[in-house]
Design a protein around this nucleic acid. Structure first.
Lengths: 337, 337
DNA sequence: TCGCGAATTGACAGCGCTGTCATTTCTGTC
DNA sequence: GACAGAAATGACAGCGCTGTCAATTCGCGA
């Protein structure tokens, strides 16, 4: 009923072990044999059983995507990353298990152990803030599970993918400077997220490059949510000298700023320029559409997964690859009033 | 190194087969034996190997979540559903594989076959519009794979979960009627989606219940996207008598309506009331926040998965359960001008 | 042509569990 | 107290593949 490795072996006239070798891309198979076996596999429509492979060998052809379920970045971000990861898996005949983790408590230990012991996960792909959650990294290390990170804070010795967020943030703010803005405010994201730090650093870089002073009262703490953007903006609007532009550390907060501006009777972009970061779908659903930085989440997911598989296939140590950013200039920014 | 079923058997003084029986909740085990075995499993921290179970028996403890990758409903919807599904899986020690499918072409056949043959998937959970994609259903049937649907169009003989969208839409429009609106327009979703039909039917029901005439010029075709909402609204605004309220079939289109209103100089809700459907995060990120119908996507995912597992565990035929809707009355609707 | 290390290939056991069917241990009955 | 039939349990093979290690074949210089 099912075509087994043994059937392919018989059809080709070689031993099962040799077919297994071809299947696993081992190098010690004569090219002519390899071709014969490959042809037979193809014509017989052979599909190896992951269960048997997992049981007999050590490989499971399973990777897990770990993400934080609790204090979630925008779910559309995760969805895009996941899509990219699945893409890469598909290309290398891996399967992916999605695994939301709650960072508080010991839950994540149980979950990770389950993945490792029960499913013999070969590697994991992580999104922030898990990428820098020490207890998790520790556990993965103990289990010897390779992992690939998306936008990790600690870049040395990580494999995965990142974007030069600092440079991107700088470019975004430089854009405001070029539009003639002098009083540029920044709304910071959740404190211990790498993204918050980089974007803030880029903001400072731009000010410095433009010869503008860094004024702490123009920097307000937010927490990546729409609501925190509203609050932060209100705070800025209470200053004696209002900023003419606000760079929010992500799109959700920028949307909050636009809300608050509306509430306050400020017209965007006439009275106030607003820009964000991430280019989520929200950015083009706002009125006016939001100037922001495009982050290619899907590609990042795919690349992170590909790097992981390079490691799993023993093709190298794995790299931390960098993807380019792109400014999306839309109608929420304009010349300073 | 690893605790095996055999180890538990030895520790308990029974045969491996008996431990296996306990593991699989078979009924023919004496209660006292069962307790002993269970205790040993617990204390030895035994974890069955899915690979071995899959290879030896027919079960894989794997379900797949199928969703349409091409003509995607809002990704946040999918993310919420997926979270709910994972919740349910966790509770029953199942694992879930996420599987985006492209409906056009034969790609989906290949993917489904891969799931069935390679991974011995036990069942699938589907989201619209896959729930009613005949070739897919056909294929699943051929393979004898049980499936659970979320908001399927054809409700007879389906198992899964649904919401009374027609009733919800009617309630939403009745709300507009109660606010004094007489010229109420509707923007329809993608033609062959069940959601579009139900919401349209509810709109008609409400008009009828309120004794208002059904005027085809107030019904415009959209396609669930922000952009189509903008276009549809512009069309409505070109009518000699403008509607005083617009009920869009989803939040994205409602956001588009609000954009178009802004563009046209109409103030929401003073000049125009707008409401949507779904209660996506976008709804509270708009200005003013959007009146809409809350659809408990996460719960729906969870319930659909639970129903599937009832079937897989042989505990019944599975039901199509109905979840309640809830109107979210926010500031985008107000008394008619 | 012979010999030898390298390149290929194969035999065989067993991964950890469950299906099948046989065996043992209980029930209750007369 | 013996016996039929039901309830529990066990023996054993094998799911489809890979690891280990042994056997074979090949290429090439002497």
């Amino acid at each position: 009923m099912r075509v087994r490795l043994e059937d392919v072996a018989r059809a080709t006239g070689v031993s099962p072990k040799t077919v297994s070798r071809v299947l696993n891309e081992e190098s010690s198979v004569k090219e002519s044999t390899r071709q014969k076996v490959l042809a037979a596999m193809e014509s017989m429509n052979y599909r190896p059983s992951p269960a048997a492979r997992g049981l007999a060998g050590s490989r499971s052809f399973l990777v897990a995507m770990l993400y934080d379920n609790n204090d979630n970045p925008a779910s559309t971000y995760l969805a895009e990353v996941q899509d990219g990861v699945l893409d890469a898996c598909d290309a290398h005949r891996y399967s992916m298990m999605a695994c939301p983790l709650r960072m508080r408590g010991q839950d994540f230990i149980r979950r990770v152990d389950a993945l490792v012991f029960d499913h013999h996960i070969e590697g994991v792909i992580m999104t922030p803030p898990l990428t820098d959650y020490a207890p998790l990294l520790q556990r993965l290390k103990e289990h010897g599970v390779p992992h690939s990170s998306i936008s990790p804070v600690h870049r040395e010795a990580s494999i995965g993918v990142c974007m030069d967020e600092q440079q991107a943030a700088k470019a975004m703010v430089m854009h405001l400077v070029e539009l003639g803005h002098r009083r540029i405010a920044h709304i910071v994201g959740i404190a211990n997220h790498g993204a918050s730090r980089w974007r803030m650093a880029g903001y400072k870089d731009a000010l410095a490059a433009a010869g503008l002073p860094f004024d702490p009262q123009y920097v307000v703490q937010g927490e990546f949510s729409f609501g925190s953007g509203v609050l932060a903006a209100r705070e800025l609007f209470a200053l004696p000298e209002l900023p003419t532009a606000i760079f929010a550390a992500n799109d959700d907060m920028a949307a909050g700023v636009m809300w608050a501006a509306n509430e306050r009777g400020l017209k965007v972009p006439r009275d106030l320029s607003v820009c964000g970061f991430d280019d989520t779908p929200l950015a083009t659903q706002l009125w006016p559409p939001l100037t922001t930085v495009r982050q290619p989440s899907r590609d990042m997911g795919k690349l992170a997964a590909l790097q992981l598989m390079e490691v799993l296939r023993g093709r190298g140590p794995g790299l931390l690859v960098q993807v380019p950013y792109a400014l999306q200039l839309r109608e929420s920014t304009a010349a300073a009033p």
